[in-house]
């Protein structure tokens, strides 16, 4: 078990390193530098700025330096927001995004999984059709459609919830709902599929023949196996919630990492992009590690190796 975790952990580190390298050289290969767009400055000053940020050295040398810096928690300066470092930006915005992201994921799981179980158990009744139609509608309403719609309805027409900013608990509701509902739809569909597969197995018949009540069949005999598809989707779901946060934080003006990433991408803020990419990738790699462990824990036929 420990060996398995260690092995996967090392693998994750390698993947992260790969991602960082690809990102770094992709950004480095981009023509010009982050500062060339500001036309007002003279070539000499530009050269000075570039030297200050280390852009006068070859990319491979910068790669090694930046890698060393990152290991010390230093993600470099922001190229656009001149007197701030990327580390500062992350320290300030990460808690916001963490809160939004974990509440969204919670909404997705707590809504999606029970709905999926219920739909599978009550297959072909309205308790199946209604939530599953809602889930299908949810999947077809991406965050950037759902967000404005929710804002329009609850923020402007009924005017019960704030639509912009981040000043108190009520500001979390709409962004978290926008992100969470979309993935709740996915989890509901996956859970329904997984549960249906379990409920159709021969061993369910064996359990019934033993006089086991239906409720016990669902919770004790089928839930473990039925949850595996949903658990497997946690990794992609986290990746999706992160990229969804780019949209949602922009729509609802939440001062989180997602908004910074979009700003960084639009303004070619190299260090910001790099730092955030590494951070996001690390989160996703970590989630995938947890998913791997959970899968083995749920399925006795898999072994830690």
């Amino acid at each position: 078990m420990l060996k398995f975790i260690g092995k996967r952990f090392l693998q994750g580190i390698l993947v992260l390193l790969g991602i960082y390298a690809v990102t770094f050289f992709l950004v480095a290969a981009t023509p010009g530098s982050p500062f060339s767009s500001e036309r007002a400055i003279s070539p000499e000053i530009l050269a000075q700025i570039e030297a200050f940020y280390g852009y006068d050295k070859p990319a491979s040398e910068r790669f090694i330096t930046s890698l060393g810096n990152i290991l010390h928690g230093d993600f470099g300066p922001s190229a656009v927001y001149a007197n701030r470092t990327v580390t500062e930006i992350i320290a300030e915005s990460f808690p916001v995004s963490l809160k939004l992201g974990s509440i969204s994921l919670g909404v997705a799981l707590l809504l999606g999984i029970p709905a999926g179980v219920l739909a599978a158990v009550k297959k072909n009744t309205w308790l199946d059709y209604v939530p599953m139609s809602a889930a299908m509608a949810g999947i077809c309403l991406p965050t950037f459609v759902m967000g404005p719609l929710l804002a329009l309805v609850f923020g402007l027409i009924f005017a019960v919830l704030p639509v912009a900013g981040w000043f108190g608990p009520e500001f979390v509701i709409l962004p978290a709902a926008t992100l969470g509902l979309y993935y709740a739809a996915y989890f509901a569909r996956l859970t329904r599929g997984g549960m249906l597969e379990m409920l159709n197995q021969d061993w369910v018949r064996t359990a019934r023949a033993k006089g086991v009540p239906e409720r016990t069949i669902v919770w004790k005999h089928c839930l473990k196996g039925g949850l595996i598809p949903a658990i497997t989707f946690l990794g992609p779901a986290l990746a999706g919630i992160i990229s969804g946060s780019f949209v949602v934080e922009t729509i609802f003006q939440v001062p989180g990492l997602g908004q910074w990433f979009v700003k960084g991408a639009l303004n070619r803020d190299d260090f910001l992009i790099l730092g955030l990419t590494v951070l996001f990738a690390a989160l996703i790699v970590l989630m995938n590690l947890l998913v791997d462990i959970a899968q083995v824990a749920l399925n006795p036929r898999l072994k830690y190796d």
Partner: peptide, 11 residues
Amino acid sequence: YALPFTIFVIL
């Protein structure tokens, strides 16, 4: 599968 692809497209 496990990687944040949207981010790559953005990059």
